[in-house]
Design a binder for these strands. Sequence first.
DNA 1: GCGTTATGCAAGTAAGTACTTGCACTTAAC
DNA 2: GTTAAGTGCAAGTACTTACTTGCATAACGC
Lengths: 201, 201
Amino acid sequence: MAVQQLHTAGRLPGETRLRLLSATRALLAAKGRRGTTTREIADQAGVNEATLFRHFGSKDALVDACVEYYCRTVELEELLASLDGNLERDLRRIASALMQRMESVRDLIVMSLAEEDGNGIVGEAAWRAPTAIKKIVADYMAKRIAAGELSGNPLFLARFFMGMVFSYVMGRKRFPEEYAAEPDQVVEFQVDVFLNGARKG
Amino acid sequence: MAVQQLHTAGRLPGETRLRLLSATRALLAAKGRRGTTTREIADQAGVNEATLFRHFGSKDALVDACVEYYCRTVELEELLASLDGNLERDLRRIASALMQRMESVRDLIVMSLAEEDGNGIVGEAAWRAPTAIKKIVADYMAKRIAAGELSGNPLFLARFFMGMVFSYVMGRKRFPEEYAAEPDQVVEFQVDVFLNGARKG
DNA sequence: GCGTTATGCAAGTAAGTACTTGCACTTAAC
DNA sequence: GTTAAGTGCAAGTACTTACTTGCATAACGC
């Protein structure tokens, strides 16, 4: 075991920054941008408030860095690679990936919806993963329509599909007790209705 | 034409209150609770800030009164009366009513999602209409399943149905240019996919 | 006319909040 | 050992904001 080298004041290099980013995220999710104070962030991070400003310069810069950090990259190769041509299975995989990503930035998505400047950095970053997946969905729908397996407008279908997942993720935030079912079950149900409809016969 | 009686200072009785409620709503939608100041509200209402406090006592009380005022009553008799047994037509009417109500309190719904205390007065009031309609949907689904016209879990179906509309209303907020289609068309499309699925054949 | 009520106006208070500064201390690098 | 970097601590600044107060005024009910 390599001995961890302490940088200063008993902290690992970069640790202070990380603690601040993490605390910021937690408080943003709970109270929103305006509701969160730099003092609270510093306290929750176990760091002095002055240190916060020495690292990030301003509260806005910290928030931006935080959002950027937690929405970094979207690697979708694995998702694309996992698609094997089986319509139902593919859609389930897409829905599952989408649900996972949306859930992981749900708080930031809500923030971006509520903020006056919904198209700022927060809005852009929070929707990065969903938007990327949306492209995949739209392309997928178009192909399957061309192949005669689906019918309708590919864009409408893509939006509908995204919406199914989105509404579930948001529903779980507002009504946690109602939406307690297993994500796998939910995905299965959603894809089933999406493909076959609810009509009997 | 009866001559309007002025109360004081050239204002109709109750007018000041209304102006304040209206201004509050507009600013809440644009900047959220914390982002809105009492000075701004008073200015936008064309009223002195002191008058605001004389009427409502505190900013919180004003916000509560505002939300309560704009989410007052939900009369659903008309909706229920309009249902005639035709499955497709009924679902369209329900979806249409739901969409209208959700759209009219969309800003407050978003606020309730973003607020730390999502279950406060705002959350309760904003979801009042949607929740009432949700009951109608669930009952409707159960009946139609019993009649053999639909299949599945009535609660899941109801949530799915609500979610279709919810995601559309929210999508229009975030991506206005993309979601510019006519509401009627959207409802038709949604109900169609909901009933028959997207699969061809 | 007279009292009541609603309002405007201007000034002020108390608290919070983003951000700064100067100093001491610890640790790592050389 | 010396230097430099990162941090804690305490105090402070400038600004915002919810909320108050005292006074003048205009309209209404009687």
